[in-house]
């Protein structure tokens, strides 16, 4: 009899609690974006944190909120980027993946330091003093802040320490952390396909620019005049190339007197630009 009592009372209790829980689950349900569930399933699931977000779920949520681009997952690569873009209906980052490029050829100028500086302190600190260590105030400071900041190890010190860091295109995911880190905004993201890139940030002109660095853009405007498609325009003493108009003919590169415009990823045809050329041969 006493067993029966216990069974009944437990059953009643279970029923009541079950009804309560069932009601609460419906009443207090948090709507979950079904896309997020789907996207998490598409992620590699390593939870490496390399993207800078707390695990794969964190990245997916950030993509859903529009805080980051879908192509920052290094282990997943382009397949995951494509899948994420599909799920969230984003443009697959303009087709070609982006990679960072250090737009400075200071390595080609052997005589670039204007004073001695404690290299331990980093680029951002060095820039606060007399316009930076280099004779050019606008180029690479060369103290490797970007190398330390890169979560994927895609940037590394050039074999010659005086040169700007080298970008390993096969590792770069185009996350843009180095772009934010560089105090001079020397690093930019470029499409991983054949295109002319201006490897100089100096806004000085002529003699003044050349006095700072032998591989500086002297704002002569020859590239602007040579371009048959009128894709090049001079802005703030630097050429800006409209890639939609550009036919990759290379006329701007031929005419450049200081060789600051180079064809990106054309390294199989021409000698590599000092210090800044992608260090790996063409990958997919």
């Amino acid at each position: 009899m006493s067993i029966l009592l216990a069974v009944i009372s437990m059953s009643v209790l279970a029923l009541l609690l079950g009804i309560g829980l069932g009601y609460a689950a419906k009443r207090f349900a948090v709507p979950v974006d079904p896309r997020i569930e789907e996207a998490i399933g598409a992620m590699p699931g390593a939870n490496c944190g390399g993207c800078g977000f707390p695990g794969c779920g964190g990245l997916v949520k950030a993509v859903a909120r529009g805080e980051t681009k879908p192509n920052v997952c290094a282990p997943g690569g382009s397949a995951v980027a494509k899948r994420l873009s599909e799920i969230f209906g984003l443009e697959a980052s303009g087709g070609a993946p982006k990679v960072a490029q250090v737009r400075c050829r200071v390595g080609a100028d052997p005589d670039w330091e204007k004073f001695e500086y404690d290299h331990e302190l980093g680029c951002g600190t060095a820039m606060l003093l007399a316009g930076g260590v280099g004779t050019c105030d606008f180029g690479c400071v060369g103290m490797l802040d970007c190398v330390k900041a890169c979560p994927f190890g895609a940037l590394s010190k050039s074999p010659d320490s005086k040169r700007p860091p080298v970008v390993d295109v096969s590792r770069c995911t185009g996350c843009g952390i180095c772009v934010e880190t560089c105090p001079n905004r020397v690093i930019a993201l470029v499409d991983l396909n054949r295109q002319p890139v201006v490897y100089c940030r100096s806004i000085l002109k002529g003699k003044l620019a050349k006095g700072c660095c032998i591989v500086a853009c002297i704002a002569c405007g020859k590239c602007e005049r040579n371009c048959p498609e009128k894709a090049v325009s001079m802005q703030n003493n630097l050429p800006v190339i409209d890639l939609a108009k550009c036919t990759r003919c290379g006329k701007c590169i031929e005419g450049c007197p200081t060789k600051v415009i180079l064809m990106f990823r054309d390294d199989l045809k021409t000698p590599a630009p000092a210090g800044t050329a992608p260090s790996v041969p063409a990958a997919s």
Partner: peptide, 10 residues
Amino acid sequence: GPARGPLGTF
């Protein structure tokens, strides 16, 4: 035009 000023910058 630009020249190095009091902070050493252009």
